[in-house]
């Protein structure tokens, strides 16, 4: 084999992947930066340069600020929930792994993950309907006060959290299960001989061995959560009531694709990109101290 090809070969292998990511993922980020300083709506012939006007308009917008604050709340609630609860479930399933019904548990818990948002939305609006939905029927039966659920401004965000969690925890659960299944058996036996209880064993031996998985899950969860919320908001609350369950990405979606205000929408996109880059950098700074993918 000619040595020229040998040197070129790796680039032929990685080239298509790198190019497609560059064009379809990084390209739009730069395009967003460009659009964010323009006034243009897809149909108008004139394109106006407006500098930072879109940014100042967005930062002044009360709905934007609500959406930004909501996004923080969503992350604070959902990210720990999406990491820890699936781990608990995975540990329990792992504990009964020899039982014939463990596949059934795994399957039912994973089921919502394979649903489309449109289907999930229909099912949950039935459960949550404040007038005669099932939750209120059950509450009424036991004599609890009825709730307005996703139409209550103070509960809407939590309802979106609940549905998002329901819809997405399955994947992380599978990843944790995989990590647990992969732990070496000898370790468990050794620590049992040492007299370590299951809890201590878990925290001192199992968990440290799963740090690559933990790191991977925490990184992907952060960014999937942002996306997943949009789908749920779109089918459940449309950001309402009165913007109280909106998130930054949903705000972007509305501005850009319902009202065709590409400039302000792209300004939102650029702001999100900056935040995402900073958070990613921080996460890797913290994560890399403990894990090495090299």
């Amino acid at each position: 084999m000619p040595s020229g090809f040998r040197r070129l070969a790796p680039y032929l292998f990685v080239g298509p992947a790198v190019l497609s990511v560059a064009i379809f993922l990084y390209g739009p980020l730069f395009a967003s930066a460009l659009l964010s300083v323009l006034d243009w709506n897809l149909l108008s012939a004139e394109v106006r340069f407006v500098g930072v006007d879109n940014y100042s308009a967005i930062l002044d917008n009360v709905d934007f600020r609500t959406a930004a604050w909501n996004t923080v709340l969503y992350c604070v609630i959902l990210i720990p929930a999406q990491i820890i609860l699936p781990l608990l479930l995975a540990v329990m399933i792992h504990a009964v792994r020899r039982s014939p019904v463990q596949g059934l548990y795994r399957g039912s818990l994973f089921l919502p993950t394979i649903l489309a948002y449109s289907v999930a939305g229909v099912a949950w609006s039935w459960l949550l309907n404040p007038v005669n939905g099932l939750f209120n029927e059950i509450f009424g039966f036991f004599g609890f006060p009825k709730s307005r659920w996703h139409t209550d401004p103070d509960l809407a965000l939590l309802c979106v959290c609940l549905v998002t969690f329901w819809k997405t925890f399955g994947l992380n659960m599978l990843l944790w299960l995989a990590a647990l299944a992969n732990l070496p058996h000898e370790l468990r036996e050794a620590s049992q001989l040492d007299g370590a209880g299951p809890r201590r064993h878990f925290f001192t031996i199992s968990l440290p061995l799963m740090t690559p998985t933990a790191f991977f899950i925490s990184v992907t969860t952060l960014f999937h959560v942002l996306d997943d919320i949009v789908g749920v908001i779109d089918v459940l609350t449309h950001g309402g009531p009165a913007g109280r369950s909106s998130s930054l990405l949903y705000f972007l979606w509305q501005q850009g694709l319902q009202f065709f205000q590409f400039g302000p929408a792209s300004a939102v996109a650029v702001i999100i990109i900056v935040v995402v880059l900073v958070v990613t950098w921080l996460e890797f700074r913290v994560g890399e101290k403990r894990v090495h993918y090299g």
Binding site: V14, A17, V18, V21, A22, F24, L25, Y26, G27, P28, L29, A31, S32, L35, V219, T220, L222, F223, L226, D227, V230, L249, L252, W253, G256, L257, F262, A265, S266, A269, I272, I273, V276, T280
Partner: peptide, 18 residues
């Protein structure tokens, strides 16, 4: 370069792609 693209929410790229 490829891995970092995991951190982009899909909605971000939607407008320019559209």
């Amino acid at each position: 370069f490829v891995i970092a693209s995991m951190s982009f929410p899909t909605v971000l790229a939607i407008i320019p792609t559209y």
